[in-house]
Design a protein around this nucleic acid. Sequence first.
DNA 1: CTGTATCCCTATAGATACTG
DNA 2: CAGTATCTATAGGGATACAG
Lengths: 115, 115
Amino acid sequence: MNEEKLFCPVEKALAVISGKWKPHIFRHLIGRTKRFGELQRALPQVTRKILTQQLRELADDGVVIRNVYPQVPPKVEYSLSDYGKTLIPIMSSLSGWGQAHIERDNHGGAKQPDG
Amino acid sequence: MNEEKLFCPVEKALAVISGKWKPHIFRHLIGRTKRFGELQRALPQVTRKILTQQLRELADDGVVIRNVYPQVPPKVEYSLSDYGKTLIPIMSSLSGWGQAHIERDNHGGAKQPDG
DNA sequence: CTGTATCCCTATAGATACTG
DNA sequence: CAGTATCTATAGGGATACAG
């Protein structure tokens, strides 16, 4: 998100995947290329501006490929790069942990650290 | 770190570990309990207010244990909960990926998506 | 269809001073 | 020692309108 150097690798990784809609975009691009409009329909809550913004950041970080077809009307396709695909297992781990955390919140009632 | 429900598990997990100093705090607590002052000395850039804040959030999420010794002067110890320890492999993955991303930035010169 | 330009709001975090 | 209270700055995200 900003250009300054992040010296902590974890922060660096988080900087790439942190963004309100990036996990969703990522999920929708797993296994398939999608046009801008398709992503928009898949994520109706996101405005064009923000969707563009997040996609550009992902592209700038090299995890997403932006393919512009010089046509009228324009056609732009987005897909995961091979590099971006290396994030899949990580996103998967995060998802698993987050799922457990959510369940913990729910039937946990009061918070009782177990360590 | 707000109270509203996050429906995406990935977002939920990110909410827990996202915070400017949380990865650092986490790293410093791996394998050892530390007092507030120790953490402060380990992370001289963080103000007491922010350090307290981030520790409280981690504790509220159940990944860190806050142990208060009713003494004068006060003594407060922080450690990873068993639950928090389940984040270690995830932080490790993030670190590995982030490291690769940093190296990529450096000797990559121009960004050239490889997918 | 796929964006950009403006303006605005809020969350996060930092500086600084005070406290049990 | 380990905090809290106030004030401020900024970055990320959003509403809305315009454009190639």
